[in-house]
Design a binder for these strands. Structure first.
Lengths: 163, 163
DNA sequence: GCGGTTTATTTCGCGTACGAAACTTCCTTG
DNA sequence: CAAGGAAGTTTCGTACGCGAAATAAACCGC
């Protein structure tokens, strides 16, 4: 029951990071491959699946959903509109917002792709025992919260010292 | 001690994935911010730190180190060479390979950036008990190996069914 | 109802990121 | 040693991905 020294901890941190990077990039790769069968890119598949579930989303809502900046999503929607997969519609209530919805072509593709990208992970996580899954979630959450604390010191994500 | 049903497991998988995505993207964000202080980008910082450690690397070795394709790294090195941070040298033994090493300017910047991006994670992992760290590593490795099995079926990563 | 601020989206410039094809050099094998 | 393949790098085309600035519409207080 020797306590771990600094070197061990550093090595473990490195290994954990390795694993996280591997899982993340592999997840992206799998999503991309899945999308390719429908002539889509990864982000485009995420958009189509999001719209299929909700039906209609503003550009900002879509951005939050796929974790990207608005300026990025503008480009993605541009290309998808060019391909006839989605349409932009200006909202009548608030004329600043653009609603995005699937065309019939887009909806058909959404229906044709059965699985959520997430499912690959669910399958992999399925080999863990329930206790392991619980532990994993608990420990990861603990680490994530710690990182969050360190990187979001105050309640203001916008203000900074030089105007 | 009821067994978890499918819905619970799906929710857990989603939450685990959330945490992994969060940790990964946050890691990138932190690296990027660190790099910005030296007028670098994230990948450029990774290159400089890699070269500082090893001294000299071929483009392919560098690609593996920063987990990117050769064609991507070509562009990164182009820009870094333009900025006078690195130089390309054709190997005399094997004239196909390009060795990349830091210039004095690049080395100075490497010295000026004290921390490994990794340290933020080590700090965060520091709040775990040794047992938790071990468990985390063990479980993540188990999941990663499972994904690896599923995605690398045989010992030949190149062959496929249509020639 | 006018000026000032906020919110939603787009534009712009730059830097990855990837896969396929081209190019050069090296290495086999007949 | 010549033909052919393999390995290392670059080029090309396309698609993110981000932040800063621009634009347009809504809101707010008075």
């Amino acid at each position: 029951m020797a306590a771990q020294n600094g070197k061990d901890i550093a090595a473990d941190a490195e290994a954990v990071l390795e694993a996280i990077i591997y899982l993340y990039t592999e997840g992206r790769r799998i999503t991309k491959e899945l999308a390719r069968k429908a002539e889509l890119t990864g982000p485009q598949l995420a958009v189509i699946k999001g719209l299929e579930q909700i039906g209609k989303l503003s550009l900002t809502e879509l951005s939050e959903r796929i974790r990207a900046q608005n300026s990025t999503v503008t480009g993605i929607i541009d290309r998808m509109e060019r391909e006839g997969l989605v349409v932009r519609e200006r909202s009548t209530e608030d004329r600043r917002v653009i609603q995005i919805r699937l065309t019939e072509k887009g909806a058909a593709i959404a229906r044709a792709i059965p699985v959520e990208p997430m499912e690959v992970f669910q399958e992999a996580l399925g080999i863990l025992t329930p206790a392991e899954t619980r532990d994993l979630l608990r420990i990861l959450t603990k680490v994530a919260n710690r990182v969050r604390e360190r990187t979001e010191p105050g309640p203001r994500p916008k203000g900074n010292q030089e105007p």
